[in-house]
Structure formats: structure tokens, C-alpha cells
Amino acid sequence: MSITIQHISKSFKDVVALKDVSFEVKEGELFGLIGPDGAGKTTLFRILTTLLIANEGTATVAGFDVINDYKSIRNSVGYMPGKFSLYQDLTIEENLIFFATIFGTTIEKNYDLIKDIYIQIEPFKNRRAGKLSGGMKQKLALCCALIHKPKVLFLDEPTTGVDPVSRKEFWDMLKRLQKKGITILVSTPYMDEAELCDRIAFIQDGKILEIDTPEAIVKHYPKPMYNIRSNNMYQLINSLKAYEHQHSVYPFGEFVHYTDNRLDFNPKELMLYLESKNLSEISIQITQPTIEDTFMELAK
């Protein structure tokens, strides 16, 4: 196992940040920690990277205990915090040399690991980090986290606030790093990114809601899911929420995802109800639940 977490709890005064969290990440796995802002993702990352001590529980990273062997962990992991934490007054190249030196290595020694990413920012290597665009900062931070060839890479919300194109490119980079044998623990609030992980853990309010492969998690969804649309989205949502048999009503792109409380649900009945609410162009079709549906059902 590359990461083992057993019964970790952490509180800050009277705020419980993590509550009895346990899971394992296998060697070479791309593992996603999926949950909203404030769920406890960052606290867990800080415990695993030895920057914070848990109140209860134990954890190991790359075979080392987070308390007893913290120095060995710091040499074996790369950590990219959610907040940009490089030196704004140093250039791209200076930041990279700085981090390589700290870890007793050189850019040349591990160049192959960062080459794909570094060549994209190399034309700007003399620009100060503080003057880079969001996408370039993110690439530089990833290079700095990789320069000492870590066994395990921790990425805390690397794509928050990043546009869909850059997010896709970032995930392509992660897949390539994974092929080089690096274990990756990544957190994200984007549910569509969950599908790109080998396994995911849903986390909310400091608790793990579920851990499995993305495919299996979707299969656990307990009810048939329907796509509903009509001429007026706002009226449709209000009407569905007022319907006595509704179990869940969530807008999903151009549709509303709807589940019903009854086992013998008949869409025709719902169609008549919606027509009675003066809606038109109504369509009700069965569909597959998504990871986001599953998360919302668990988080309810």
C-alpha cells in the first residue's frame, strides 16, 4: 500500500474537521478525494504530508509513519497545495532550481519526469512566478512538486477555478505521471473529474461517505433516474418539487434529474400532473445516474 489511513480524526477547537477516516491507496493508483469546500480534504492532505498532527488514528505514506518517520515522508512525497505557494518574486527557473536544491537534486537529473509539463512554460522561464497566468502557475507548481521524483504525489484541488480546456490538459498530464509509477492522491470539487480516477472517496463534513471505483459507485444508486424537460425550466423545477411523490429533483444541464418515491412509478401520471401545471413540450425519459447524482443522494 502506498497510503494507509486508519481511524484518523482531527478537530480545531470545537470544529470537527475529520471524523474517523480510514482508507488505503494502492501503489500506482490515481485516487480521487471528492467533496465540496470545507469537507476536510485539505486537513487530510496536511496530515498525510506531515504538516499537521491528527488527534486520533494512524497513517503511513510510502511505508513511513506520519509521526515517527515524518522526515522520510517529506523526501518521498510531492505536495501541491490548493493555494499557490511558490515564491512570487522568483522566476519560473529560479523556483524550480530552488526546490531541486532543497531536495538535494538538480533539474537535469529528473528532467524526464517534468519535461512534458516544463516545455509548456519554458518560453517564460525568466518571468516571475507572481506574473504568471493561473494555468502557468499550476504547471510550475506541478513541476516543483515533481522535481525530486516523489513516490507519492498530493494534489489539493489543482483544478479549482480552472477552465474546462485547461482542466482536461491537466488530467492528461496526471495520467502520464501515473504511467511512470507515481501514486497520486488528488482532491477536487468537480464531479466529472471523479470519473477519471481509478477509485474515489466521497467526503463531506469530515466523513467518508463511500469508497469505490467510479463505475461501481454509480451502480449503487438506489432508484431509477429520469431526465425531464419542458418549455420552462423554472416552472418545471417548482412543479416537480411540489409533487407529493418526488424523492429528488435536481437540475442537470438541459434536463431535470428526477426520482420518485414509489416502486410502481408511472411516468404517464407525472406527465399529466405537469400538464395540469400548464407546462408544455414535456419529455420524461429514463436515464443513467451520474457520479454527481450519487454524491447528492449520499450527502442528502
Binding site: 465540496p36 464531479m191 423545477i237 437540475p251
Partner: peptide, 22 residues
């Protein structure tokens, strides 16, 4: 970017507020 990093349920509640305002 009103909903960046917000959980999926709250994100939808936020959009219902947008629909209402519109």
C-alpha cells in the same frame, strides 16, 4: 464564477435563486 468550489446540492440551490431572480 459564483459557484466555484461549492457542493453540488448548494450549487443547484444557487441556480434556483438565479431562476427566481430572472
Amino acid at each position: 464564477e459564483p459557484t466555484g468550489g461549492v457542493d453540488p446540492i448548494t450549487r443547484r440551490q444557487f441556480w434556483e435563486m438565479i431562476y427566481k431572480a430572472a
